[in-house]
Design a protein around this nucleic acid. Structure first.
Lengths: 306, 306
DNA sequence: AATACTATTGCTATAAAAGCAATAGAACCG
DNA sequence: CGGTTCTATTGCTTTTATAGCAATAGTATT
């Protein structure tokens, strides 16, 4: 029995809830699927599908089997792709997902150079703060603020993601510079909205986390606009240090130092990571893109670091 | 082409470095293997093996392919076993690995009951502080002081593993009760040796970790013997709270409280976990054993908890 | 009750793998 | 250095298993 074929057939049947549909997908008669799946069930000694002539649905054990087998088939496909393309040139579609702000200011400017280096790689960059699932077929490379979700994913630390409090000189002149975190309640906060909600301002006072957010003047998921608001003296803002270099240099924004350090999460060492699947590193297009992005984005970090 | 068969053949060839040997393992002529592997290479468009008539060894890409394929085949086998045994009674050999001290005092006493409940399950318990690799075929259930090594392994917290400092009344009478961690240097330490070396005594003074171990009077990997030494007033000892309930109750040992809390690792919330592979939870023997051990060992925890 | 769609089964044709014997290449040994 | 032995591969035949088709039986829908 060609077990692998049987597994593929079985999965397709589960996905389409139909032998006929699944058969069409593989361009074979439904009888073939019926036989292969029956073989599979026979060799396992368990019924995987509840079948009436009208409805096909997996049994409890069938569901479990499907979940796991599907994952395995997916892994196999990936390995095959890796080997198949191993000795080929970097080419084909490459999907990159990056956090909106970081992607726009740091990643996009690099892509022209990348395209001249590897013209056969077609880039598909999506900037979003939604969390994409690496591992399913959707994304080749992700740039995120989180660690690796599992051991099949490699995470490379690109740079710190330390958030600092900034405001325009005009704002400070008008409102006065806060010196204590408790004074923030009398200020105007500009908040970045993540998919999980606006980022609060936290600080640890005597081993206890407290939310010392200022009243919100504006909330947006668009960092640029928030930055403009801050520069215009509309409010005070927590933003990642890497995004502030130009504004701090030309003096349009100043860092505000308080009695307690301010954070946006309880996680102490926030950082930005580049994520990819280890299995796929040997696919040429993935390899060159990972290496390129890591080399370029790590070098950006150097002047910011201390 | 039966791809799965080809993969199995390929792996066996890599493992034995020989088509002939691999063929024997599957009781088929070597020509079959040669053809299947050749097919595989054809479909991948890559040479997996360097072959002379005398030596067979994987190419660079072949090695990579082997590693990954082997893992996948292993997963498949496990899933199949889970499904095959799904509706069977709990039976067969079940391997449990537990930390020596905890296993002896907490796990072994339960096994008679387990055996009467599930007489067809043959228990194979190994007590060792060496770290066993769950995931390879060696162990079904492990009881350890660490978290899950990857997302395929489920970890269930059984109880705290807080270490406290204890000594016999006679020892305290003779040596005096230490009040500060810095006084420990004038005491006699009894140390438990883990595979990574004797457990030092650490404490955090002003955000800084310091080793405040007493000079060693005795070191052993046998907790029982160390306990006897402590009861005999030979020295002072750091031991997990769960192991001390009897001694503390009958007064043969007393807890020693110092100015700073003492630890044996920098990890703050030490605990004991039961580990098993999620994939295998549906294998009846594994399921009943996990459920049994968790229910029994968690209930032990209750009187110790606060 | 008739219709339309479904999964399954019996049968035949076809494709693929197994098995065997023969061949060619590589190391070993006297 | 030539013979021996063990190896992987290849040509050919037999055997097995799958594909493909047509017919059947079952289940919803109208």
């Amino acid at each position: 029995m060609d077990q692998l074929k049987a597994l593929r057939y079985f999965c397709k049947v589960v996905e389409t809830s139909s032998f006929t549909q699944a058969a069409k997908a593989y361009s074979v008669p439904p009888s073939s699927l019926s036989r292969r799946v029956a073989d599979l069930e026979g060799s396992l000694g368990a019924n995987l599908l509840k079948r009436t002539t009208r409805v096909v649905q997996p049994t409890e054990i069938g569901k479990m089997y499907y979940e796991q087998v599907q994952d395995i088939l997916h892994q196999l496909d990936q390995i095959d792709e890796a080997v198949r393309s191993y000795q080929a040139r970097p080419m084909g579609q490459l999907r990159i997902s990056a956090m909106a702000g970081f992607g726009e200011s740091k990643v996009l400017p690099l892509l022209d150079e990348f395209r001249t280096l590897f013209p056969e790689v077609i880039l598909d960059v999506s900037l979003t703060d939604e969390v994409m699932t690496l591992g399913r077929d959707e994304v080749d490379i992700a740039i995120r603020g989180g660690y690796a979700p599992n051991e099949r994913v490699q995470a490379i630390r690109l740079m710190d993601n330390e958030f600092i409090l900034v405001a325009a000189p005009s704002y400070i002149e008008q409102m006065g510079a806060p010196e204590s975190v408790l004074e923030l309640r009398h200020h105007k906060g500009l908040y970045f909205r993540t998919p999980t909600g606006p980022n609060p301002w936290l600080c640890k006072i005597e081993e206890e986390w407290r939310d010392v957010s200022a009243p919100a003047f504006a909330i947006s998921n668009n960092g640029n606009w928030l930055g403009q608001q801050a520069v215009a003296g509309k409010g005070i803002m927590m933003a990642p240090r890497w995004s502030l270099a130009p504004s701090l240099e030309d003096g349009s924004l100043c860092e505000v130092i308080l009695d307690h350090p301010l954070h946006v999460t309880q996680n102490p060492r926030l950082a930005i990571f580049l994520l990819y699947q280890k299995q796929r590193y040997h696919v040429p297009k993935v390899k060159v893109a990972v290496d390129f992005l890591v080399s370029r984005l790590r070098s950006i970090d150097l002047p910011t670091m201390r």
